[in-house]
């Protein structure tokens, strides 16, 4: 456990602070901004862990595309209330206890670390490790089939998002034809009765 890297300590501490800020912020926009900061710090972490290509991808995809999408939806839905009451009594204490167990177990296992590089010796990371050239080489030779499949997944998700969120302009009289929201809903036999 020697050799605590100061850069890693600072970035890691900031990442934890922004993550906690994200789940504690009352305003959803503040949450989203904490999340953008957190994803940026994760990109720096990837740089420290010799993954420069993933750092760039993280900034573009997560901090760029995904969080802009989240902010768009937050603004589309308008003002959100904070929802601080507790509908299920005792839920928070149960959740905190379970989280304590989960966190302790995860950190305990993570503290074991992983064995060093199987080739033995002190692991010296080659300079091209994780570079765009190395990643491209791996993606387009060894992993070319998953690469194509994942593009199909993205296409399906795009179509699905459009279909789900599409605004249907229903005619006004359709409401009467729908028994679930009809005015005389009391005549419909309830499944619990």
């Amino acid at each position: 456990m020697s050799g605590l890297d100061p850069a890693f300590l600072i970035v890691g501490a900031l990442a934890i602070v922004t993550a906690v800020g994200m789940i504690l912020a009352k305003n959803v926009v503040h949450s989203a901004l904490f999340m953008v900061a957190h994803f940026g710090l994760t990109a720096v972490l990837y740089l420290l862990l010799s993954a420069p290509f993933l750092a760039a991808a993280q900034l573009i995809v997560y901090a760029g595309a995904i969080m802009v999408l989240v902010l768009f939806v937050v603004m589309l839905l308008g003002r959100q209330e904070a929802l601080l009451d507790e509908p299920i009594v005792g839920q928070r204490w149960l959740a905190l206890a379970a989280l304590g167990v989960l966190g302790a177990a995860l950190v305990r296992v993570a503290a074991l670390g992983v064995p060093a590089a199987p080739e033995g010796g002190t692991a010296v990371v080659p300079p091209a490790f994780g570079s765009p050239a190395a990643m491209g080489d791996a993606l387009y030779t060894q992993w070319v089939l998953p690469f194509e499949v994942v593009s199909l997944v993205l296409l399906v998700a795009m179509i699905g998002a459009v279909v789900i969120a599409h605004f249907q302009r229903r005619p006004r009289n359709e409401k009467a034809g729908n028994p679930a929201i009809a005015a005389d809903a009391t005549e419909i036999p309830s499944p619990r009765a």
Binding site: S2, D5, G12, P52, L106, V109, A110, A111, G113, V125
Partner: peptide, 18 residues
């Protein structure tokens, strides 16, 4: 390329991720 990465033991990023 990034000399800092060469001295980082693997357990600390794992604990941070946990």
């Amino acid at each position: 390329m990034i000399p800092l990465a060469a001295v980082l033991p693997p357990a600390q990023p794992l604990m941070l991720a946990a």
